[in-house]
Amino acid sequence: MDYLLTSLSAAIGLITQLNQEVLSTVGISLYTSLTAILLASVLGVPAGIALGLKQFTGRRLVLTLLNTLMSLPSVVIGLLLFGMLSRQGPLGGWELLYTPLAMIIGQTVLATPIVANYTLSVINGADNRIMSTAMTLGAGSLQSGWQLLKETRFGIMAAVIAGFGRVIGEVGVAMMLGGNIRGFTRTMTTAIALETSKGEFAFGLALGIVLMTIVLLINLFLNLLQHR
């Protein structure tokens, strides 16, 4: 009990004194996750809208694929991308492995199906008069789609936030593609996973507190959106 309490007070100390190492780790986490979720939104939201509105052959297959990807463990995505980006892999020449960009790619792959899937259900649940109203007022299909996006903005935001929650808290991709390099690719989750095995419990705890706070805020915000 004493051990936990001293570690806790040390952890809080690290946070309140804005410890450089804690800040840099939190910064790297936010940088990669935010960039990844931005890319995932650019890809996933239009994909979700298209899947929600269009009938095409193979749609069912795409939906199944999307659901599979969504529940795929992050280490499996990490594994596949590792194979692609490693020196022996087809994209090895890009020298991306163990860089923040590799993590961003992995997290984008992780978040895109989530964003697309949530967007799809938002679109399915949207008032079906939105599109027809926009069209009868003279909008083309893209303009109507844009209006649909505006009308369902809270749902779409929830989709994006759900994706963000997934990437900020995942370890597999960050560890396998980033490599936990201090000050470069060390994120909150990889640090927690690996620094603790160094006996740096207070440091891990400090990051855990920050991560928990971020996830808590995200969920509060999500709750707020859903009850609007």
Binding site: Y98, A191, L194
Partner: peptide, 19 residues
């Protein structure tokens, strides 16, 4: 100088990948 906080085997893999 890349400090990775991992076991010897993983470090060998990383050194190999990064040359």
């Amino acid at each position: 100088y890349l400090e990775v906080g991992r076991g010897m085997g993983e470090v060998i893999t990383m050194a190999n990948e990064r040359g």
